[in-house]
């Protein structure tokens, strides 16, 4: 996928996250883009690794910086003491018009992800994205208990009960996503 098409998808995702009430800081965009790319099969081609707080892409981090340089997104400081939100600019509308086919193709997938994760904070997103990462590398064939074990081994700060509820929630989201992708 070309850079402008990726920019169109990322700015569309940011707009939809705001529309559905997400805080939409950089961590939110990182975790949600990971799920959008892999679960919803949107070919953004960012390389993600399991980092300190779950899946993280240095490519995506640099891309967000380049989108700021191009004036397509900006950081919006929040009331103290919270970190900034990412918002799109009016210039991103031009990209949306230029890449209208790309947006039309992936719009329902972006919408699904934005709606599903709209109310999640960064701590919950870390658990869910890590649960999806573990599910993905196991090709979905490993039991809930085994995945919970893997999550708590990889991320000892995640409590067993929280890991279990994250696996259960992500399994439910995967089922809904597969249903949507078949349509």
């Amino acid at each position: 996928m070309k850079r402008l098409n990726r920019a169109a998808i990322i700015t569309q995702l940011i707009d939809k996250l705001h529309k559905y009430g997400s805080w939409c800081g950089e961590t939110h965009v990182q975790k949600i883009t990971f799920i959008l790319q892999n679960l919803m099969q949107v070919p953004l081609k960012y390389e993600f690794i399991l980092y300190k707080h779950g899946p993280f892409s240095f490519d995506l981090r640099d891309e967000l910086t380049s989108l700021r340089a191009d004036g397509l997104i900006e950081l919006e400081p929040q009331q103290l003491p919270y970190g900034p939100k990412i918002v799109t600019t009016s210039r991103s509308r031009n990209i949306a018009a230029t890449c209208s086919k790309t947006i039309a193709k992936y719009n329902n997938r972006i919408d699904f992800i934005a709606k599903t994760f709209n109310d999640k904070g960064v701590t919950e997103l870390e658990r869910l994205a890590t649960a999806y990462f573990v599910t993905m590398v196991n090709n979905s064939v490993v039991s809930v208990d085994e995945r919970v074990k893997q999550i708590t081994k990889l991320k000892p700060h995640i409590l067993i009960d929280n890991a279990r509820s994250a696996v259960s929630e992500i399994d439910n989201i995967i089922m809904q996503a597969q249903h949507l992708l078949k349509q």
């Binding site: 961590t27 939110h28 003491p81 919270y82 970190g83 904070g121 960064v122 701590t123």
Partner: peptide, 9 residues
């Protein structure tokens, strides 16, 4: 570190 959002501790 300051919290990223209102839900983070």
């Amino acid at each position: 570190v300051h919290p990223s959002d209102e839900k983070e501790k």
